[in-house]
């Protein structure tokens, strides 16, 4: 804790807070690429219609972190050099048109030869299919309503006791998310779009004051090609914009967050009830970024209907 306070006094509370929220963005912009039958707007696991149970196990390696400041320039570098995350998720149908998923990440942060690990914040998500795809009219996409809640209990930058923040595994503030996910997959050429809004539930009482992240908007556009049930290749972009954070109730200048990420994923059916998916996601260098950590992510995931 002493190390954290010394760090604070060196660079000033305002700058420190911006760096903190930048670092927090690492935990807000997970790219799950494309889930089984949705455009990946929110959660890694999506159940097919009438599927009752489904499990997901994913391994993600995030590396090449590059902190971008409020002007879009490379900022102060700290934190892990790589992060390995094991994502465990279970989905259960509630009705024929809705399901709930519970997702928990186990995070290993690494910097050179040092590493620290532990559970991140679990997330519970609900999806309701407002409009189901049908062979009757293949042009009409599936429309799903998304709602999720992520806890803020995992160690955050506000409680960290490690100078390199290797023990940080969460944002520190619970968050709720709602959105709409469109997905058209009846033909060989697939496309999807998702829009979600994330709002913090409460704020974080920290050493530097009462910190509250801004409301965030996330847009996902996806397209790709599928070979029947055997597999598909998808690519897309994510844009995430977060409004200003507040410190002690006052908006924090230059604290808006903007991130653009591109992803490419390929999945294949290895058994009738099992899919394997590989995803590569990378921050788009050509587009603007502000107060965000650019990185690249390689994910391998297995999904099995139970």
């Amino acid at each position: 804790m002493k190390q954290q306070l010394r760090f604070t006094s060196e660079i000033g509370p305002r700058c420190f807070c911006i760096l903190l929220v930048t670092y927090l963005s690492l935990f807000n912009s997970s790219v799950y690429a494309c889930a089984s039958c949705g455009s990946g707007g929110d959660d890694p696991l999506i159940l097919f219609p009438w599927e009752t149970w489904k499990a997901h196990l994913g391994f993600a390696r995030v590396s090449d972190f590059e902190l971008i400041d409020q002007k879009g320039e490379t900022g102060y570098e700290f934190g892990p050099e790589s992060r390995n995350t094991t994502i465990v998720s279970f989905g259960r149908a509630i009705t024929n048109r809705s399901f709930v998923t519970l997702t928990a990440p186990y995070i290993v942060n690494q910097r050179r030869e040092r590493q620290m690990s532990g559970w991140g914040d679990p997330m519970v998500a609900v999806r309701y299919t407002m409009l189901q795809q049908s062979l009757e009219n293949e042009s009409i996409p599936q429309v799903q309503f998304i709602a999720s809640y992520r806890t803020g209990d995992a160690v955050s930058v506000y409680e960290t006791a490690d100078p390199a923040r290797l023990d940080v595994r969460g944002s520190g503030v619970p968050e709720a998310r709602v959105g709409i996910d469109l997905w058209s997959a009846m033909k060989s050429i697939k496309y999807g779009a998702a829009q979600t809004v994330t709002t913090p539930v409460g704020s974080k009482d920290s050493e530097i004051g009462d910190v509250k992240p801004g409301v965030a908007f996330r847009t996902t556009l996806t397209t790709g090609y599928g070979w029947g049930d055997q597999g598909k290749v998808l690519c897309g972009v994510n844009r995430e914009y977060s409004f200003k954070k507040s410190l002690n109730g006052q908006p924090l200048e230059d604290s808006e967050m903007l991130a653009h990420t591109a992803f490419l994923s390929a999945d294949a059916m290895v058994q009738r009830n099992t899919n394997v998916r590989f995803t590569f996601a990378k921050s788009l260098g050509l587009l603007d970024h502000r107060n965000v950590s650019k990185s690249q992510t390689l994910t391998m995931a297995v999904q099995r209907s139970l």
């Binding site: 219609p49 009438w50 189901q132 795809q133 049908s134 062979l135 009757e136 293949e138 599936q142 997959a185 009846m186 033909k187 029947g228 049930d229």
Partner: peptide, 12 residues
């Protein structure tokens, strides 16, 4: 068959 099953189309 199911209405949402794209792979069922060849049977139709």
């Amino acid at each position: 068959i199911a209405s949402w099953c794209a792979s069922c189309k060849p049977h139709l």
